[in-house]
């Protein structure tokens, strides 16, 4: 009785300490977990993988550094995929503080691809194969304006180059040239993309979202408004797995770093610990209640 009572009144800092250890130890000594793609992840991957050659990929960085841990692996995986299949890529940021994050991901992925490139055609070049439009405001004008003419919304790119002069923009005039737009978001931006860009212009959409908002966005996967969805770090790990399999098949066994997958053993250990806490907490609650009655 005393034990259960004490357990119910335990200082929450002990719980934090346990979680800290449970998350940290598997990061140092990881155990292998092979992510299995869930249907929304598989459908987004397949959709992008089978895009027609003349269609580009637009990725919107709709998150800020506080959710970088969950969403950056998705952004990196999506960029890798788009470059591996040689589609023109346009990246923009709807969140102002997402600008640097977008640039970081682009720099990382282009360096990876270019370090393995043997010819100029294999490499990815700014202005030729991709463009980083950057950020402008207000979102409603951006989302509607890009459906008409992207260069009008972004006269200059993030680096100050005139977008009209970039060769890639000849293949990315507006939404008609984009096979899909993926919103990687920590807010309700994917919903705005549906409301404004998809309803008006019919563009196909994908979403990479934080796990917190996953339950809110599943209805849009079910209705077909999203061609697929990556939910949280687990979604990123599943996408990384699919991409690696696909790259190996294409003869690109580059063993690129997979931050989402690396985190999965810690994630699994933490989930087990939290399940254990919930079970122990409930046993303690019912044990003390029975004694009282």
């Amino acid at each position: 009785m005393e034990f259960w009572k004490k357990l119910q009144a335990i200082d929450r800092r002990w719980v934090y300490l346990v979680i800290w250890l449970v998350v940290m130890i598997p990061l140092i000594f990881p155990f292998k977990i092979k992510p299995v793609a869930s249907p929304p992840v598989q459908s987004l991957f397949t959709y992008i993988d089978t895009l027609p050659e003349n269609k580009g990929v637009i990725i919107s960085v709709d998150y800020t550094p506080d959710s970088q841990a969950e969403l950056q692996p998705m952004l990196v995986a999506l960029l890798r995929h788009a470059f591996v299949i040689h589609r023109p890529v346009g990246v923009l940021a709807m969140a102002l503080q997402g600008l640097g994050i977008g640039e970081d991901a682009l720099r990382q992925v282009t360096a990876e691809i270019n370090s393995h490139a043997r010819t100029s055609a294999d490499s990815v070049l700014n202005g030729r194969d991709y463009v980083y439009w950057g950020w402008t405001t207000p979102p409603i004008t951006v989302m509607l304006g890009m459906g008409q003419r992207i260069t009008k919304v972004f006269p200059v790119d993030y680096y100050g180059q005139k977008t009209e002069s970039l060769p890639v923009m000849k293949r990315m005039k507006n939404y008609d040239d984009a096979g899909i737009l993926v919103s990687v978001a920590a807010s309700s931006f994917p919903l705005y993309w549906i409301n404004l860009a998809q309803t008006q212009f019919g563009i196909h959409l994908g979403a990479g979202i934080t796990a917190v908002s996953a339950a809110d966005f599943y209805p849009y996967v079910n209705s077909g408004q999203f061609s697929g969805m990556l939910a949280g770090m687990k979604g990123a790990a599943e996408y990384e797995e699919l991409l690696e399999q696909s790259m190996v098949k294409r003869g690109m066994d580059w063993k690129l770093r997979r931050k989402g997958t690396e985190a999965m053993s810690s994630q699994a250990a933490a989930h087990l610990a939290i399940i254990a806490f919930i079970i122990i907490g409930n046993i303690a609650f019912f044990a003390t209640r029975r004694r009282k009655s």
Binding site: I19, V23, V212, G232, A270
Partner: peptide, 21 residues
């Protein structure tokens, strides 16, 4: 929603630990 929230919060913590370690 609660399950996903747990996953999200742990993910953020993992991200910081990946950085620290």
């Amino acid at each position: 929603s609660f399950g996903y929230t747990v996953m999200a919060r742990i993910s953020l913590f993992i991200g910081r630990l990946q950085f620290l370690l």
